[in-house]
């Protein structure tokens, strides 16, 4: 792909394609985890539609020029779901598909959490929860200081919002009027050890972000038309209120037995029988969508 080819914001993506893309992310994730021997299934599945919407519709990108200064930034605050991002970045041409075969191996640029120094297309490293909204605010502020109109998106989990630093960042983002910053909360209701509400309640999320001076959109994070519309209708990057998209999602979405036991599949490894069942379940849905 020539360096100056820009994937523009709002490029065509039908609702069916979006959902099929999300399922493709799930299938790829299952294979990558099988190869590595352990991985984060259910929290990757909760944000598969969000990732598909961002990379195939909403973000302005130049895959052949990963450091293009005017690209939209995407930060994976919940870094443990990078498994779902690697096939997408390979698909867009950031690096060869072959790299996926090295996933999880010593010396591979692709790890369970993303490292910006190793893989093209990663705008910032993550893995330590609570950092990336601050980093994203820094990028958004840099856009203001350098007169650029890129947007910065930060995908966080809902458990991640228990980290105090998130609220320091939320405060700074509204103080500096960063309408070019979009936080996407994958509100799947669970952290690693159990329901977020039992560990440390973070609700009411919309009111909390509003109280910090953010524009809030609360949506169904799996519903294609709503996802497309929400990202199409984002306020102009020059506007003055940062935007929080609270995406209500299901942890393990798209695989029935994981939806029923989302916590058990936060970190795990499918056995051969389960693997076959999951692949069959997702593939059948994709074929159905293909008509």
């Amino acid at each position: 792909m020539p360096a100056d080819i820009t994937l523009e914001r709002g490029r065509a993506l039908t609702e069916a394609e979006l959902l099929r893309r999300a399922d493709w992310v799930r299938l790829q994730t299952i294979d990558l985890i099988a190869q590595a021997g352990l991985g984060h299934y259910s929290s990757t599945f909760s944000c598969a539609e969000l990732v598909a919407t961002l990379y195939y519709h909403a973000l302005r990108l130049r895959p052949a020029e990963p450091n293009w200064p005017d690209r939209d930034r995407f930060l994976l605050g919940k870094g443990h779901v990078a498994t779902g991002l690697w096939p997408v970045l390979a698909d867009l041409g950031y690096y060869p598909h072959d790299w996926l075969k090295q996933f999880g191996k010593v010396g591979s640029p692709l790890n369970d959490h993303p490292n910006m120094k190793l893989a093209h297309g990663i705008d910032f490293s993550s893995g330590s929860l609570g950092h990336n909204l601050s980093v994203g605010a820094g990028m958004a502020l840099a856009a203001r200081l350098t007169g650029r109109d890129y947007r910065t998106f930060v995908l966080t989990g809902d458990g991640e919002l228990q980290e105090g630093q998130v609220w320091e960042a939320a405060m700074a983002a509204s103080h500096y009027k960063l309408g070019n910053l979009v936080a996407i909360i994958d509100a799947n209701g669970f952290s690693g050890a159990g329901p977020t509400s039992q560990a440390m309640n973070i609700e009411p999320l919309a009111k909390r972000f509003e109280a910090f001076g953010w524009t809030v959109r609360e949506i169904d994070g799996h519903h294609a038309p709503v996802l497309l519309r929400t990202f199409d209708e984002l306020p102009d990057p020059a506007s003055e209120e940062p935007v929080a998209i609270i995406a209500r999602t299901r942890k393990g979405h798209g695989v029935e037995f994981m939806e029923k036991q989302p916590q058990a599949w936060h970190l795990g490894l499918l056995n051969a029988e389960q693997y076959a069942d999951v692949v069959a379940e997702i593939s059948a849905r994709m074929e159905l969508a293909n008509g």
């Binding site: 200064p69 910006m116 705008d123 910032f124 950092h131 990336n132 601050s134 980093v135 994203g136 605010a137 820094g138 990028m139 958004a140 502020l141 840099a142 856009a143 200081l145 350098t146 105090g164 630093q165 320091e168 960042a169 405060m171 700074a172 103080h175 500096y176």
Partner: peptide, 22 residues
């Protein structure tokens, strides 16, 4: 860039600024 009494945010925010060339 005044950060208020929020040192941790100041460091991560600076990392974001630096990644954008500042």
């Amino acid at each position: 860039i005044e950060c208020g009494i929020a040192e941790t945010n100041s460091v991560s925010l600076a990392a974001g600024l630096a990644s954008a060339g500042l």
